[in-house]
Amino acid sequence: MTNPTTQTSRPSDVYFFATCVVDQFFPGAGLDAITLLERQGIRVHFPEDQTCCGQPAYSSGFEEEARRVAAHQLTLFPNDWPIVVPSGSCAGMMKHHYPKLFAADPTRKAVAERLSARVYELTQFLVEVLDFQPQDCGGDCKVVLHTSCSARREMGVHLTGRKLLAGLEKVSVVQQDHESECCGFGGTFSVKQPEISGAMVEDKVKALKATGAERVVSADCGCLMNILGHAAWQDQQAGRSEPSLPGEHIASFLLRRTGGEQ
């Protein structure tokens, strides 16, 4: 899918839409993403009233409920600044589904369209807008990258995370088998169809481990929750105390590799 976003100059300010998962479950990833952006000389604004993009309800078929939550987010970004989202699936929701969600409400539709045009997934923003060239200051390290299906197929930004990692001199990025296949998260899918979702994450973790990478990084915390949750469950079953597949958000990894929080 092509990305109609047009951002030509380097902005001085951006909004940060953390997503509910990052706010509650991966706050460190959110903080690292903000720090990373600030280190590029950008003022990062975190609208205090943000909650959730509405995707859980939307993809579960509860459009009215999704609309109600999405309508609230529409009010949070009054200035014409880019909206950076550390998640491909939430960015995809705001970029591609908000305009459709408010199709019947001309006022909100116009707001949704203006918002949609300003939404960036984090790695996309770093590469396409900031042309971020990370200076690696870490030692040799082997990582594997998992890209979410939304980032890949909805946002079409499956190459930006890879590009950022490729810029790190001492980091080698290995490729897992069936790289483009879904990890099995899919929001409520993981609880409504636990057998199938479980089989998918089992295969995904197996493929990630088979690369021999030290850690998995991803720009989507939904996938990470699923992948790391399964790896930790395996460790628990096997009585291991050290994680057999450590992982983190790509923002945390990038920040640490480029000098930490300083």
């Binding site: 479950f25 991966f26 979702s197 479980g198 994450v201 399964h230």
Partner: peptide, 16 residues
């Protein structure tokens, strides 16, 4: 279904 093959979800001690 989540915990059939995953560890339980637990909110972080501090939100972002």
């Amino acid at each position: 279904g989540w915990t059939s093959v995953r560890t339980p979800l637990q909110p972080a001690p501090k939100r972002l």
